[in-house]
Amino acid sequence: MILIFSEVNDLSTLAVAGYLDDYGVPYTVVLKTDTLRYTDADKGTLYIGENKICLKDIHAVWFRRGKFFIRSNAFKDRELDLYLYENNVIIEDYVNYKLEQVKSIGSAAGLHVNKLIVLEKAKACGLTVPDYCLEHDFQQQDATYIVKGVNGNTHFNSDQLRIILPVVKLNDSHSSGLSFFQRYTEKKYELRIFYLHGRFWSMAIFSQNDPQTTTDFRKYNKERPNRNIPYTLPTAIEAKLTCLMESLSLNTGSIDMIVTPSLEHVFLEVNPVGQFGMVSLPCNYNLEKEIADFLKS
């Protein structure tokens, strides 16, 4: 049995499930709206609604979206609710720990990464990263820095600071809260890389040709979309990325990089639950089948 934690109508999940159906391999998709329980019976039994699955029958887990969780009953009694919640957390952690013991894609723990830790580890693995700093009051008259939320959020709006999707080039003195400033990196093309258990599928995005998407390709140009084509990473870069993913205990993720006009590879960030459809489809990588094959084997 393959267990897949996901969301309703997630296209990637549906595509992977289609291949599992072709193979005739049993799988269960757990949605965030499902009511989950766990008992010790029969060496551990999961209940997904009325559906019963023994832990020992699960041979692969895909943490596509979410993880094992127990929805707490609210008794409107603060003390009691807190007590039950604390109990549930221990059970949740235990079940997720057990689920991570089998072959898995993603993990219960690795849904979030700390940007600052990632950048530090990337440097330690030998990757080039843009200069960055954390500042309260960034008065430097330097147009070569871009500002991002340190938490990775791309939307923020207040009287003091406005971050417009997704980045703004800083061109005047800027008074902000504690913000993350990253030196703007000139690029020849951007890379979106899907990583799965030591393997890489990369896509080059030629966003530099289009002034509308020069700073970040997510500002789509629908008339003449940026070119997206398959790309092969130099083996030395793959080795450094593998080092990074291993040091972050990530078995999968979406990695963003930049190739500079002098063809240097610069690491930007990793998203542990990144979309792979946007790399798979344009490059015809058929990652949905790769994932189904991985889960099946």
Partner: peptide, 11 residues
Amino acid sequence: FPPMSTAFSGS
């Protein structure tokens, strides 16, 4: 820049 696969797949 390797050639793009022209394989057709779908379940």
